[in-house]
């Protein structure tokens, strides 16, 4: 692997996704602000009328805190990791095909992409941690080491999902098929999960509905996390080590050649696209 090649590929990808990245950095504080404003309103604004007791305020503060930390971490890290926009743009511009005529190895290609992801992941994590600290302060909740591991565990899950999506999307060689493949990948994941839930609902005994307070729910969640710490923490650490390696190997393997891709193979001759339909004229031209 040549460092100059990785640097050049990184420069290209950075130039391509710079605007998207800056937009993401600008949008995330607004997203965080949404939860901060709700919490502030509960104490000082219109929502103070509803949350008028100390007990209610405390309960819902906890809820806002955990909701904010969880959603912001998922959105920040998940969006940061996604490089599908860049991949689609490469397919659209025919760069992917052209890049196989350049003196670039699949390893260099994967390495530049991985560095870009690492930078974006770091940015996503910084946003997630800053949000957690500020929300904890506003909500009068403690920011503990558990919370750090909780956010890192969310990042590891997002990384796993990213690797899963790569398995599908990096096979695509026509820009029009990227979105379809994403939907397909999600369906493959969702359908077994839904069937599992349905089975559980059908087989589990239905008892009397129990009232659970917000505090109890949060406490249950915390207890679950703490009682499984001996699994979650090592799994997160392993995830942070193994998943980037897996992502690198996967990219190297799936992008090793443009291959006999399901795209137009020659002028005017069309092959069936991944989903059985004929590619559109535009895709055919692009291919």
């Amino acid at each position: 692997m040549k460092l100059s090649h990785i640097k050049a590929l990184f420069l290209r990808e950075w130039r391509l996704t710079k605007k998207q990245f800056i937009g993401f950095i600008c949008a995330m504080p607004l997203f965080c602000l949404f939860f901060w404003l709700i919490r502030a309103s509960m104490s000082f604004g219109n929502l103070a009328v509803i949350f008028d007791t100390e007990e209610m305020l405390h309960e819902f503060s906890g809820m806002i805190y955990y909701m904010s930390v969880t959603t912001v971490a998922f959105v920040a890290v998940g969006s940061a990791l996604s490089d599908i926009v860049a991949f689609s743009a490469d397919l659209n511009a025919n760069w992917l095909r052209y890049s196989y005529a350049l003196p670039v190895t699949p390893q260099e290609r994967a390495a530049s992409s991985l560095i870009m992801k690492a930078i974006r992941l770091a940015a996503g994590l910084v946003i997630a941690f800053v949000n957690a600290v500020i929300t904890a302060k506003i909500s009068d909740m403690p920011f503990t080491a558990d919370m750090v591991w909780f956010i890192l565990a969310i990042a590891a899950v997002s990384m796993l999902y990213d690797v899963y999506m790569q398995c599908f999307v990096l096979r695509v060689r026509a820009a029009g098929d990227v979105a379809k493949m994403q939907v397909y990948a999600m369906m493959v994941l969702m359908i077994p999960a839904m069937l599992f839930c349905l089975k559980k609902m059908m087989t589990d005994a239905v008892g009397e509905p129990e009232f659970t307070s917000m505090d109890e729910m949060i406490e249950k969640g915390k207890t679950f996390f703490i009682s499984h710490e001996n699994v979650i923490i090592p799994a997160t650490v392993i995830g942070f080590i193994v998943l980037p390696v897996l992502s690198f190997l996967l990219q190297t393997y799936l992008l090793r050649s443009f291959g006999d891709a399901k795209e137009t193979t020659d002028e005017g001759r069309k092959k069936k696209s991944l989903f059985g339909k004929k590619n559109t004229e535009k895709e055919a031209d692009a291919a």
Partner: peptide, 12 residues
């Protein structure tokens, strides 16, 4: 290599 269509992104 020179292809029939420019393989560079429009925003470059």
């Amino acid at each position: 290599v020179v292809f029939d269509e420019l393989p560079f992104h429009d925003l470059f």
